[in-house]
Design a protein around this nucleic acid. Structure first.
Lengths: 237, 237
DNA sequence: ACCTGAACACCGTTCAAGT
DNA sequence: ACCTGAACACCGTTCAAGT
């Protein structure tokens, strides 16, 4: 990202020296910001190289000078998302609170930028912010008294689950609200109409399923996982 | 799916009466079988209407007489997958065993048809097999002594987690083995090379992360969730 | 050194026309 | 009743040519 070698200044640096802002100079950050704006404004399907080029006022192939392809742009967006969840987060005295807080921040970032989360689902960036998040979680698990093997095991269990759930929830949140409401209505209708003779158990709890609330749903899974981890932890939370 | 009304026989029925197999007659099942074969043979990206048409020996738009669009075909594939996991599964005396067995079958179906699972990730079919699976899980939770509200809550926690994990694992398994191996190597290399001063906790457990095994990973999450459910259950498993 | 424009090989969906 | 073929409005990526 940084250019070294003082004898070959980047064009942006040259432009700045001439006093003109490099408004037309493309770079990875400008491209990622434009991609994020595009996805948030018009939804996941709007992220095409052609529309991204238009957003940037450039030819649609110019972007490929800075990213090897569309996949690499998506990885950049994934890293931005984790960055937002992790930046400035400080562990607390209670390892359980540290883990719960981080999980809620990951989910929060997914829900704040559902379009981005939906488009990025399942991609691991293997970059800075991801490492910081991993270090926080593993630190909390060691605080709970787990050895390295168990800390690694439970880190993956917690991280994979949180990301998988965040991505899934974001996919729903990314639908426009009319489509989401239509989907929810169809789901309720079909589950409430299920045959009580064919599916007796399902039919009798269906009203509770229909009343389900997503925050409650997330807290339930998080609570279950942390209860089980606590049950196995050498130290109190 | 079945045609009633004896005075308006379907073309397939007419062809059969004439003694010729309806080899050219399209219907939903033939289309879904072809779609599944195509995805398993050539991967998720190969599922396009044009290639599906070629697979069926028809025009690529003929499929749209039977499905309203590509999305509806994906829903059909999702239902087939759950069908395979659920068909013939019988609950046991131990509710915990019932839940664990079903979760393992869902995962097994995803891993047997990773290409299909990858393409279908996150879609709920709201059809027969899904209802049967829900009924089994909720039945087991009632056997554990939970009331309707808790049974509904924990059903969603378990089902969402199992499906999200199955989908994620399938997405990895769907890569061709060269790409998968390359990805795993890159992942190991970058996690093992992480700076011990910047990420002390991560660096010291990294060897265990690199040694992680996916079966173990799945069983860890399943075990955590079931331990926590058992902790809250009125009846012994 | 960086960007453009044309070209290539594809997509999903619509719709008038055929049989 | 069902299928075809052409057309429409798009894709991502490559590459020679420009500045």
């Amino acid at each position: 990202m940084t250019d070294h070698g003082a004898d070959t200044p980047a064009p942006a640096a040259r432009a700045a020296r001439r006093g003109r802002p490099p408004s037309t100079a493309l770079n990875r950050d400008r491209i990622l910001d434009a991609a994020r704006a595009l996805v948030e404004r018009e939804g996941p399907d709007a992220l095409t190289l052609r529309r991204l080029g238009a957003e940037l006022g450039s030819n649609h192939t110019a972007v490929l000078r800075h990213f090897s392809g569309k996949e690499e742009i998506l990885l950049g967006l994934a890293e931005q998302l984790i960055e937002e969840a992790v930046t400035g987060y400080e562990p607390t005295d209670s390892w359980r609170e540290t883990l719960a807080g981080l999980a809620r921040r990951v989910r929060g970032a997914c829900l704040t930028h559902p379009q981005v989360a939906a488009v990025v689902a399942g991609r691991v960036s293997r970059r800075d912010a991801e490492f910081r998040g991993a270090d926080l979680v593993i630190g909390a698990l060691r605080q709970a008294g787990f050895g390295d093997r168990e800390a690694a095991r439970y880190y993956r269990a917690l991280a994979d689950t949180a990301l998988a759930m965040g991505a899934q929830e974001a996919a729903v949140a990314a639908l426009d609200s009319a489509a989401r409401e239509g989907d929810r209505l169809a789901w309720r209708r079909e589950y409430l109409a299920v045959s009580p003779t064919a599916y007796p158990h399902l039919a009798s709890v269906a009203p509770h399923l229909a009343a389900a609330d997503e925050d409650d749903q997330f807290e339930t899974v998080l609570g279950l996982l942390l209860d089980a981890v606590e049950l196995r932890a050498p130290h109190k939370p």
